[in-house]
Amino acid sequence: MEHKDLNLLNEALGHHNNLYGRFLLLEDSVDTSAAFVLHQILKRSFSSHPSSAVIFLALSNPFSHYDRILRKIGCNLAAQRDNNRFFFIDMLMLQCPDEGKPNHDRFAAVFEKIVRVINTLPQDNKKFVTVMIDDISFLEVAANGSLNDVLDFLHYCYTLTSEYGCAFVALDHKDIYLNEEKPAIILEMEHLADILVKAEPLATGLAKDVHGQLMVLHKQTQHQHGISPVKIHNFHFKIKENSIDCFYPGTKI
């Protein structure tokens, strides 16, 4: 049953290789964190292909944190790291800017690092690379609030999807931007994104058995594998100790 329930999220995200060549944007809020979707996608990426690899740009949490969580849901990050399938780029210290050096140079260096990692991979594995950013908002902190620098960096990451056919997954919080209904960065990202996943608290208020709702939107995009139609999935979820439950509204007793 549990296995089947989990499929609801997987189903919504599409079959395993569906993410390659596309950009998935995760949006969450203080009330409902979407970090668990990131963990699920991380786990999924390793099982999508025997030679797949993940480049993880960590801005909000250290490796040990992800290692612990992923171990619980059945994925050994440390082992993957040793197998050269998981590349953890620790950017927690990025937020201490060295004076005098412009932001974009620092971001260019980070991007160079990503490209270097991709280039060290064997030719066959390059097609199955997932680039993940665990918190875009911290990028903005690192750039001293310069939106353009962040967007330039994200654009460069996005070019990887067309150049190498990488999957690009990024998480952002939509409620941390000051007195704006729709902040510019979120709008820019939503325009760019091929798949949008929104985690929201229940519209009806708090509930014990339901932790929030997810909306997965596939835009109608033309990509290398042809044209994918518009799809919208809406379902509720409950986060458990070792797994998550996904179910359609009203089907949980």
């Binding site: 974009h104 160079e112 490209v115 270097r116 280039n119 460069y156």
Partner: peptide, 14 residues
């Protein structure tokens, strides 16, 4: 658009 990859290429990594 900003020539970042160019720089990378110069340093031989690209």
């Amino acid at each position: 658009p900003l020539g970042w990859k160019d720089k990378t290429r110069e340093s031989g990594n690209f």
